[in-house]
Design a protein around this nucleic acid. Sequence first.
DNA 1: ATTTTATTGAGAAAATTTTCACAATAATAT
DNA 2: ATATTATTGTGAAAATTTTCTCAATAAAAT
Lengths: 204, 204
Amino acid sequence: MSTFIQTKRLLKYRMGLIRLKQMGLEKVFSYTLGKEAGVSAELVRKDFSNFGIKGNRRGGYDIDDLLNSLEKIFGKDRVQNVVIMGMGNMGKALSQYRGFPDNKMNIVAGFDIDPAKINKKFQIPIYPVENLKEIVDAFHVSVAILAVPEIAAQESSDLLVRYGIKGILNLAPVLLKVPDDVVVNNVNLMVELERLMYHSGVLK
Amino acid sequence: MSTFIQTKRLLKYRMGLIRLKQMGLEKVFSYTLGKEAGVSAELVRKDFSNFGIKGNRRGGYDIDDLLNSLEKIFGKDRVQNVVIMGMGNMGKALSQYRGFPDNKMNIVAGFDIDPAKINKKFQIPIYPVENLKEIVDAFHVSVAILAVPEIAAQESSDLLVRYGIKGILNLAPVLLKVPDDVVVNNVNLMVELERLMYHSGVLK
DNA sequence: ATTTTATTGAGAAAATTTTCACAATAATAT
DNA sequence: ATATTATTGTGAAAATTTTCTCAATAAAAT
């Protein structure tokens, strides 16, 4: 998929832009933003150009304009509700994320099979898995974070898919089997750690 | 860096191979492994070929041989000690990861500025940040996981670098400023979630 | 008003990654 | 023993991504 990597970069730009804005800046040059996002200036320009975002020759890019354009690309016109499957430490960690400022993403609930975790006093309400369908329907949820142990990952994924989830952020080290219309984004932190070890010259 | 992506795939192959082995298999074909890792069969073969790993024409690859070759590539001959900065939910979640079977990675300690978190009864010992140098020296640690809040990320990174850490897995949404000889691997879970939303057609 | 300067925008070139295509070959079947 | 078949290994082609280069141009300086 050709735009998959590019999207990742656009999101990094957004992150950088928000940071620069908080520092009081209003304009930014491709060079500056590239440095902020760890990308070459040419690539920044090309990316924006590809998405039809215009800057001002000699004046750089207007940060607010850029952010607006990015918001439009990401279609943040209405709130997106998200649920978390598995409220162990990872689930809890993610439930605290509020996303970026002005971000219309909203984590509405967590689910766990452990009755000891069911508790309305946490950051977000935590329900038993039996309530999944009810919440997904009520909040029109179509994206879920899967933060259950490896052994339960496929089973939980099946459940999410059955109730209409169309996107899963999978933190378990398993390639999930899902229908074609469901998108999975796999993040494997152990792989990232090993990769780091390899590249930091520590190993070898 | 040309091998950065390839390494990621090799690690995925390893994950897949371990899973297949657990299922009782001894041989694997490029096609099967590719499916397991979400990659084309040709690419599996090319990757192995590039790293000098040989299969058996018509017989496929021997899983144990492959795993041995991969271990050699990743230089898993001695134990690698790792520390975690920040023992909030994310730090705790990661401290439970034991890595892959036969993996010589070892998370030896966690650090936090919150005195309430200092506790020898957890999975791994949790020390105040004052003890960082001592532990890094004693265990010859050169890789760290940074799981502190955004606001503390650069400061913590500086500390790690000062005490000789050469690789940082950074979970905070900040591009860290580090010397050239320190490698940073950034993982931004919010970006991954947004990316998922974008690609799952949920948005726009 | 004119010149200089810094920066974008984009086509072309280079580099990299992935797929194609098929010869080589080892296992299996006849 | 021979033929058939399935799979690897790899060079070549295709596709994709990134960088190079420089004309266009807006801002700033003179």
